[in-house]
Nucleic acid binder design. Structure first.
Lengths: 148, 148
DNA sequence: TATTGTTATACTCTATAACTATA
DNA sequence: TATAGTTATAGAGTATAACAATA
């Protein structure tokens, strides 16, 4: 058995990780320094901002986040008054999560910033390539399987 | 200001992170359970396996890894006899890193496994799309800027 | 003084088990 | 018994400062 001739920068898991890290860096700095948020926190905030109120369980499903991560993120967002919980009458195990006006405002700022960072990211790439990129990543991530 | 109409599963940093995580999961389990390696360790191993001996500094540049990560990964790989260091005569600050036969063999097994996982990953995708995916990710990651 | 590499430390992220309260 | 959510804990990943040895 001779040299396997493996070319590392063609290996998709590696390439995806490096691209993800590079692509997320600026946005990460933004939500961290501006709002003191962690990754799981902005993800939960965005789910509520994009899709409206829902249970923690639903956030887990949509975001592919484990319930322990969501639990802590929800607690942190509540502490910072971004989010409110409301007891459900029908099933008291479930709490309906929704953004406060402050949370909504923060979501609007963050999503605008996200849109700017993304525009910067795809700047110079043909729209057709970006469209294809999204569709391939959607399949690979499994995010295309989650119903909204 | 009304609803920002931000669609989270279209946000590339998010999409890239989810895809990267999903794509890396199987390979990660493989090198961890089989060789007890961590992420930085297989990356260093692959750089030496793919490109031959080089200094730690060169690994840092090519892999976009901070010198502290490389330093610890090299120490771990040396402890496990995957890698050997050799002092440079010209400049005694620099050590040339290379794989031992055991390290080489491990690299061959891991790179073959990597190729299998990747084949599984792109299975069902048109080769043209995969090619484009790679080229876009290469640009986004900045990996296209590193000379080999 | 600058560079290569090491050690220390703090924080974030991931994963899992054990638990409470409700159904 | 099963489900929604919480708490505890360990290990892996990231980031930075301070350091030693050499140039």
């Amino acid at each position: 058995m001779s040299a396997p001739n493996f070319h590392l920068p063609h290996f998709l898991p590696y390439l995806l990780n490096q691209a993800a890290e590079a692509a997320s860096h600026e946005f990460q700095a933004y939500y961290r320094t501006r709002y003191g948020m962690l990754r799981a926190e902005w993800r939960v905030l965005f789910h509520l901002g994009c899709y409206g109120e829902m249970s923690a369980k639903r956030v887990c499903e949509l975001a592919s986040l484990h319930k322990t991560k969501v639990s802590r993120a929800v607690a942190a967002l509540e502490r910072k008054r971004f989010l409110a919980r409301e007891e459900t009458e029908a099933d008291r195990r479930i709490e309906t999560l929704s953004l406060t006006p402050h949370g909504q405002q923060t979501f609007e700022d963050l999503s605008a910033a996200a849109a700017r960072f993304e525009a910067e990211l795809v700047q110079g790439l043909p729209p057709e390539e970006v469209k294809l990129l999204r569709s391939v990543l959607l399949k690979m991530s499994g995010l295309d399987q989650k119903r909204i």
